[in-house]
Design a protein around this nucleic acid. Structure first.
Lengths: 159, 159
DNA sequence: ATGGTAATGACAATCATTACCAATAAGGAG
DNA sequence: CTCCTTATTGGTAATGATTGTCATTACCAT
């Protein structure tokens, strides 16, 4: 008897299943997200798409990012430096589950996915507890470490 | 031989020690932050201060929040709903160390400080590892759980 | 009490994001 | 393949939060 295999739905399928259309702008935006480490601003994406699809409008980029976010395909993250950043949701990302190191000086962001075993254990306890205590249905989480990246530490030493 | 006791510096002291002045707007802004659960927007604070100090300008509120943030007295948090929120930094907060449950539906935010023992253990391992691996000097962290609060779950069930 | 300057308040300016609307193009039905 | 419905687009205007400017005020060290 074969193991049940949940076929991972492609993002295109899940858009269509939900009754929406596949358009070229939408595809181009996803291509950019798929070919990058992550945490791009809407403008970053706009500029990259614009290279190969010059007709794209910035409004369309925003609209699609919101759309994709609502459909669980793209994650929107807000670090405290003005603009929102976007990256592929875990399920569609080659990077997979990860979190961020944020440099408070230069605002650089580093992805990490070390210590996931420890994280899983920790989160299981906490999520279960929080759900019960606050009657909250937790769907995802975000962990972020702030501080100084190596470059900024060096600059600080010099002065 | 007495134990060394690190006297907690009042926020006013730490402002003065850094060579800056104590002003009435600054004090009023802190009063508001001290008398609230947390996560207020600049405008929330402006409105509250305005009640008892009608001359306050919104610009002054922004400027002071940034100032206080840079001096480690106030924490600035950005959830993905437009405006930045502010609360007392852990060290000056009666609430103490805590994290947030964010409802993705109604944007409500709940503070929690349960499971801190588990968190401490987890963070010790991870912070040590990340510092070494990425040469990052970690100063603080943020953990956030997103999902649906009870009210929004109920509303969902009805439909 | 006073002088140097940090801080203020009003207003203008900026910057990210959203609203609007007429024009376009997916993609299902025939 | 063609037609039709309507989701989607792109351009522009509008919004809303935050920041810059600058003349004026008021801390506070001396």
């Amino acid at each position: 008897m074969p193991k049940i295999r949940v076929k991972a739905e492609s993002w295109e399928d899940s858009v269509r299943v939900a009754g929406f259309r596949m358009t070229q702008p939408r595809r181009e935006i996803m291509k950019v997200l798929e070919s990058t480490e992550g945490h791009l601003t809407a403008e970053d994406i706009y500029l990259q798409v614009h290279e190969i699809y010059p007709n794209i409008g910035l409004t369309t980029v925003y609209r699609n990012l919101e759309f994709l976010n609502e459909h669980g395909i793209v994650a929107k993250i807000c670090f405290q430096h003005g603009k929102a950043k976007y990256e592929l949701a875990e399920q569609y990302s080659p990077v997979g589950h990860h979190h961020h190191l944020v440099c408070d000086e230069c605002t650089k962001i580093i992805n990490y996915n070390d210590f996931m075993q420890e994280e899983v254990e920790f989160l299981e306890t906490v999520e279960r507890g929080l759900s019960r205590r606050y009657k909250f249905r937790i769907t995802h989480h975000e962990i972020q470490f702030n501080g100084l990246c190596q470059d900024c530490q060096d600059k600080e030493d010099q002065s």
